[in-house]
Amino acid sequence: MTRTLAFPAAAPEAAVRYFGAELGFEVDPDDLVQDLEAGRTDGYVVVETRAPEVFALARIPGAINLPYRDITAESVTHLDRDLVYVCYCESTVCNAATKGALKLAELGFKVKRLSGGITGWIAAGYPVEGAGITERGIRCAC
């Protein structure tokens, strides 16, 4: 038997539940950039969960900065609870987006995470705002 099939594939019904649930938690950069470029921003807010100093250097256009360490019931009173908050951080090796999404969810907000973070966003050639990436490049800073 091949390694690929060492564990049998799930039944189609189970795969629908699993992959459908996964898509409820994440959005990919291509879907997000297409929405942003088409002006389809109703219903969600893009949230950078790293520190303010790296947010100032490079961020997804229109994103707000909510460092995950600062998310409390008091710090999010201004947020609209009817929106979905799409959290991102540095990359797949940084979990600030996961921590931020968890904190927001614990406070009753609907959340998703952007796959690949800003590193994946930039690698795909998508636009960024900010003062400019330094010679150190994109870093976690969470």
Rank of each mutant, 00 (worst) to 15 (best):
G62S: 14
H78W: 11
L32K: 03
R81I: 04
R81F: 03
V93S: 11
Y68F: 13
T92A: 07
I60W: 06
S75M: 08
E48A: 14
G39I: 04
F109S: 02
L36W: 01
G125N: 03
L102G: 06
T119D: 08
D28N: 15
I64R: 07
A11G: 10
V111L: 07
I138T: 05
Y85E: 01
P8T: 14
A96E: 13
E106G: 15
I138E: 05
L66C: 05
D30K: 12
G24L: 03
T41K: 08
P127H: 01
V86W: 08
A101N: 07
I118V: 15
V33Y: 14
R136W: 11
T98E: 13
R136M: 14
G108S: 04
T4C: 05
I118D: 00
Y44Q: 03
G120H: 02
S115H: 04
V111D: 02
C140N: 11
E48F: 14
S115Y: 03
T119N: 05
K99F: 12
A58P: 03
A6K: 11
V76C: 05
A9F: 11
G100A: 06
T4N: 09
E37D: 09
P8Y: 08
R69T: 13
A56V: 13
V45F: 03
P67M: 11
E22K: 14
R136K: 15
P8G: 10
G108Q: 06
F55R: 00
T72N: 03
A14E: 15
E74S: 07
A73T: 07
I133R: 05
K110F: 02
L66Y: 08
A14P: 00
I118R: 01
A124P: 00
R3G: 14
G108Y: 09
A58Q: 04
E37K: 09
Y44F: 15
A131K: 12
R81H: 13
G117E: 00
P127T: 06
A6S: 12
M1Q: 09
C89H: 08
I122W: 04
I60K: 04
H78F: 11
Y85M: 00
S75F: 08
T92V: 11
V93M: 12
K112V: 03
A10Y: 08
W121E: 02
I122V: 15
A63H: 11
A96Y: 03
E37H: 06
G120Q: 01
V111G: 05
G62A: 13
I60A: 11
G132H: 09
A123Q: 12
G62N: 14
G62K: 13
I133T: 07
G43Y: 02
E53G: 04
M1F: 11
P8I: 14
R40Q: 08
Y68D: 14
D70H: 09
E26S: 09
V76Q: 05
A63R: 10
G100E: 00
I64G: 03
D35K: 15
A11L: 13
A51I: 06
E53V: 12
E48M: 14
V46M: 01
L57T: 11
D80L: 07
A9M: 12
G137Q: 06
G24F: 02
I138H: 06
